[in-house]
Design a binder for these strands. Structure first.
Lengths: 230, 230
DNA sequence: GAGTGGTCTAGACCACTCA
DNA sequence: GAGTGGTCTAGACCACTCG
């Protein structure tokens, strides 16, 4: 892994932020200071810092300096697929707890979506550094993943498992804001009635429905983002 | 409207692609050729081309050249682009009220996003059959749409107008759930603290930021949906 | 006035591709 | 070997902020 000087500087600054060497809002060394520290020209430092700003790790203000940006838990709209991976890639610790795993009678909606009356049902809570970030309430079509109930979902997320046995061909998302019910609030550790981001996610593999999931996120701690070109 | 050399080059190339001067897959002039054409140093051309590549307008291959990229398939995800059209297509009546339209001092965040301190600011409320469906709080870079303040936004939505004067090249969405403030609640006709779906939407045209909008929707009456193929 | 980030220059070396 | 993009240098000027 050969890194260019500007990449080394980026990694160094990003690492310093992740490790808490600099706190949120704190001033980072100036470009000239970094030139001396890394023995490079200012254009090289400038590129590193410009890219960090574009990636929203830092804020830059002409005449004042560069500052550590506020971190936000952010997921890609298209890729809510692996929340464990996203949490880990932010430098946090992911942990999940399996609350339910077994057969269930599908509601009429779910039965229509999955084309089955008896389905697999799992409920997990995903934690980022011991703070609840997502409730994953999932129904799975048994024919599409017969070994679903034999998995240890504390180690491999249901999504990751399903991607393996039934490769994704299509996804549908419906996003809405809702007030936390008593049940949801207690699992997420928020107040009853506080705003939650609720994602209904339906997946297909080879044109056949695989799974329907309802994902609850605490409004104050979670955002979805997406960027597209026209 | 002061453009830096690298921005001029970006706009020129982006415009040439948009206008069909170069077709998809076609080779663009080399960096050295562009140096001569624009009478700038290679680093300046390089920055322009590197940013166009990051914005996926072009592909660059070392040793070969720069090529016009395949336009990315619109994910159709958060097609909030024209709420008036969406409402009408549901068979409802769309009506909007302009609450604010004028100059404003940008907050630090908005100034950083738009690259301007003094910006245009508009606030609208969109109604579906006389029920509030969206508050549209928008900031616009004046250079990108100089005639913004002269428009009648009760007839043509800001988004539709901007699409005309500054064709969309890129969109970024951040979606979150939040509790309605007193102000938001009164405009949407919901209870204070009730869940709202808040969309931060940032748009670019030819690689330059055009507008930042914050869209508030009543959680009980609004959903976003999207469907993708893998 | 000292310091900051934003930008630009006119060179340079490299790895790569293609004829 | 000629041409390409990827990167770097050691200067420079500017507008801005802050004490």
């Amino acid at each position: 892994m050969m890194l260019n000087p500007y990449q080394i500087i980026k990694s160094s600054i990003a690492g310093g932020i992740a490790s808490g060497q600099w706190r949120v809002g704190e001033v980072l060394p100036s470009e000239n200071a970094l030139c001396k520290r890394f023995s490079v020209s200012r254009m090289t430092v400038n590129r590193a810092m410009r890219e960090l700003a574009r990636e929203r790790l830092i804020n830059r203000v002409p005449g004042r300096g560069s500052f550590v940006a506020e971190p936000v838990a952010q997921s890609g709209l298209v890729q809510i697929r692996n929340i464990a991976h996203e949490i880990v890639s932010r430098g946090s610790v992911h942990r999940s707890v399996v609350l339910t795993l077994g057969w269930a009678d599908a509601t009429e909606d779910v039965a229509a979506d999955l084309g089955a009356r008896r389905v697999f049902h799992s409920v997990l809570v995903h934690y980022e550094d011991d703070v609840a970030l997502q409730i994953e309430d999932r129904f799975v079509a048994p024919e599409m993943a017969p070994s679903y109930l034999d998995q240890n979902f504390a180690r491999v997320t249901p999504n990751a498992f399903l991607m393996g046995v039934a490769p994704l061909s299509e996804v549908e998302h419906v996003v809405q804001a809702a007030a936390a019910s008593v049940h949801v609030a207690s699992l997420l550790g928020v107040d009853v009635g506080s705003p939650c981001l609720v994602v209904h996610r339906k997946t297909w593999s080879g044109g056949r429905p695989v799974s329907v999931a309802i994902l609850y996120h605490p409004g104050a701690r979670f955002r979805l983002s997406g960027r597209f070109s026209a």
